[in-house]
Computed example of a mutant assay.
Amino acid sequence: MSLPLHRLPPLDPLKGFVAAARHLSFTKAGEELHLSQSAISRQVQTLEEQLGVALFQRSTRALHLTPEGERLFRTASEVLARLGSTVEDITASRRQPRVTISASIGVAALWLVPRLSGFQARHPDIGIRVSADNRAVDLEAEEVDVALRYGTPEAAPTGSLKLFDETLAPVVAPTLAAALPDGPRLSAANLAHLTLLSFEDGRDYPWLRWEGWLSQLAPTPPAAKALLQFNHYDQCIYAALAGQGAALGRLPLIRDHLEAGRLIPLAPPQPTPNRRAYYLLRSPSSKRPEVEAFAEWLIELGNSDGNASTETGGQSPSGN
């Protein structure tokens, strides 16, 4: 027959006793439970009075369990551990599953964030945390489940999946395209009427520079109307959308703007040197169902751009 519940020790004194027995110190037990040393001492004393036995042998230098204290500690610590595990399981079942994804600031702003509503519509019970950073983060150390990486096939991490290739073209807003004297194209005649929007964040991205495009116009192309520089790529595109000038568009990232006519290409698209592309990388330790669902959704988006995902291997590419 089970002991009536009213005869069992209160939980708080029992917790104080287990902590004190674990550390053999009232002071350290108080630190664990965020209580004072005297509060732990009173809890243990209350428990001893209720049981009618001493649980500790006290001295000026040390604290030792009595035989009765050792028996109670073995049972109570096991019961509290099982109780804690059950409480954790119950609360975990109520928490919304969440996926953390890392992407560069430009990729997150222009490509990922505008598409997240599609995933939320399919999986309303899964939360998403976007960590936008232009460095290639350590997925394990920074607790990131999925990352979008940009680089060459040779530099793609082992086991990553290619989502889509990179292509470039100069783009402008339709109002600016309509005002160009030589029509909506990149030409020497139009250059004097164009402000060039340039991405410069202190690192070397020669394929994102204007020099290669301008050298195709003439041996010595005329000067542009002006130059505006930005340290985040998405700022270039937002400036172009506002009609402030021409940006070198990374076409997969601005596909929605092109299809909606918000941006007009001024030249045929060109691939980047060394076939740079966008890759999906999953953390080896993130095998939760919500992570798999999010990764599958990203792969579907990549396939919708007309590029089948393929496994690659090599060194880690940049996070841009």
Rank of each mutant, 00 (worst) to 15 (best):
N274V: 02
K287A: 08
R262H: 09
R275V: 10
Y279P: 04
R282T: 14
P273A: 12
H257V: 04
R262G: 06
L253A: 06
P271S: 07
K287M: 13
A277V: 04
P268D: 08
I264D: 02
P273I: 08
R262T: 05
E290L: 07
H257I: 03
Y279H: 10
R255E: 10
P265M: 06
R276D: 01
R276N: 08
L253W: 02
L266C: 05
P268E: 14
K287G: 14
Q270R: 13
D256K: 12
R262K: 15
L253I: 10
I264Q: 11
Y278L: 14
R276H: 12
P269A: 15
G261D: 13
Y279F: 15
P265G: 02
P269R: 15
R276V: 01
R282P: 02
N274S: 11
T272G: 06
L263M: 05
S285V: 10
P268Q: 12
T272P: 03
E290P: 01
E259L: 15
L266Y: 04
H257M: 12
P268A: 13
R255D: 13
L266D: 01
E290D: 07
A260W: 00
P265C: 06
R262Y: 02
P265I: 06
L258C: 10
R275M: 03
H257A: 14
Q270F: 01
I264A: 00
P268T: 11
Q270T: 07
P284G: 09
Y279L: 09
S285K: 11
S283C: 15
L253M: 12
E290C: 05
P271N: 03
P265F: 00
D256Y: 08
R276T: 13
P271F: 09
A267N: 04
S283L: 01
E259C: 08
K287D: 13
P284Y: 08
A267M: 04
L266A: 09
T272A: 08
R282F: 01
H257N: 13
K287N: 14
P265H: 00
A260L: 08
A260G: 04
P268C: 02
P268Y: 04
L281H: 13
E259Y: 04
A260V: 00
P289V: 01
L263F: 11
P289K: 09
L280Q: 04
P268I: 11
L266K: 03
Q270V: 13
P265Y: 01
P268G: 09
P284M: 11
P268N: 09
G261S: 11
S286D: 06
S285P: 00
E290K: 05
R282E: 12
L266E: 07
T272C: 10
R255P: 11
A277I: 07
L258F: 05
A260K: 09
P273W: 06
L266R: 03
L281D: 11
P273V: 08
P284A: 10
A277M: 03
D256I: 09
Y279C: 09
L281T: 11
L258S: 07
H257C: 08
R262A: 12
N274A: 15
E259A: 15
P271R: 14
D256W: 03
L253E: 08
